[in-house]
């Protein structure tokens, strides 16, 4: 599904700002990979670079989705190929309602694939179903996108978008940060209900607790822009117990 080879990335237009220093990762169809690491390890950068955020510059390496190179594509084109990024800090957009925005997103995707746009009636039905499934307050989605939403409501709204857009590769960038246990469970249930042999996930997280609810197939430990260890779900438990110190020491960084 997704192949990352020797990926290097820096902050755009800033010298010596390399954050990702040669990432290699192979994600199979239907797999869930967790990427764990301490603050400043480059987890969020990796998630954003994969989605094509223009603030970063890829200086070396290759990323392919289903065999096709994606690094030259804009974020919207990557989305049309089935990619999705759930943001750590979703933007607040005054005057734009989630309904309206998601309809535009689906229309744009349909257009790029030469398919018919979904009718307003069918979309409304789908939207209402997903609102209920995600457990988001229906009055909330009538308001401006994320404006005045609590941290938990914003994350639920990201799950709503995930449900409506039905991507084949979903990247969750610290979607668990700022969530209470109930909200965490809802996010996890959203992800779990969407797990399928056709859909892959990359779950970026600092803590192990989200992984109590979403059992990953593979766990990668990212430190200082490199994956220093890859293992099974047990690796997450180990990090929970021992922290990142041994990995930081191994790459010569200060803990």
């Amino acid at each position: 599904m997704l192949e990352i080879k020797n990926l290097h990335a820096s902050v755009l237009d800033i010298e010596n700002s390399e954050i990702l220093k040669g990432i290699n990762l192979s994600l199979g169809k239907g797999e869930v990979h967790a990427i764990m690491g301490p603050n400043g390890s480059g987890k969020s950068t990796l998630a954003n670079v994969l989605m094509g955020r223009p603030d970063y510059e890829v200086t070396d390496g290759e990323v392919t989705l289903e065999g096709e190179s994606i690094l030259e594509l804009r974020a919207d084109q990557r989305a049309h190929l089935g990619m999705f990024l759930a943001f750590q800090y979703p933007a607040e957009i005054p005057g734009v309602r989630p309904w309206q925005f998601l309809k535009a997103a689906l229309d744009s995707k349909a257009e790029s694939r030469g398919e018919d746009k979904m009718s307003v009636r069918n979309f409304s039905k789908l939207f209402d179903e997903k609102v209920e499934a995600v457990g988001i307050n229906p009055t909330l989605v009538k308001r401006s996108l994320n404006e005045g939403f609590s941290g938990g409501e914003k994350k639920r709204n990201e799950m709503l978008q995930l449900e409506v857009l039905q991507p084949t590769l979903a990247i969750l960038d610290e979607t668990d940060s700022g969530l209470d246990v109930d909200a965490l469970r809802i996010v996890a249930e959203g992800v779990n209900s969407m797990r399928s042999p056709e859909r892959s996930f990359i779950v970026v997280t600092h803590y192990q607790r989200l992984l109590n609810y979403i059992t990953p197939d593979v766990v990668h430990i990212l430190v200082k822009g490199q994956i220093v260890k890859t293992g099974g779900p047990e690796l997450a438990l180990e990090v929970e117990k021992n922290g990142y110190k041994e990995y930081l020491d191994a790459v010569g960084a200060n803990a």
């Binding site: 804009r74 989305a79 933007a91 957009i93 998601l102 535009a104 744009s108």
Partner: peptide, 20 residues
């Protein structure tokens, strides 16, 4: 970028923001 990551191209995203 948020809007673009959902599949809305830059022109359409700008239109949504202006309308908003």
């Amino acid at each position: 970028f948020y809007l673009q990551s959902r599949g809305v191209d830059e022109e359409a995203a700008k239109a949504i923001l202006v309308r908003g």
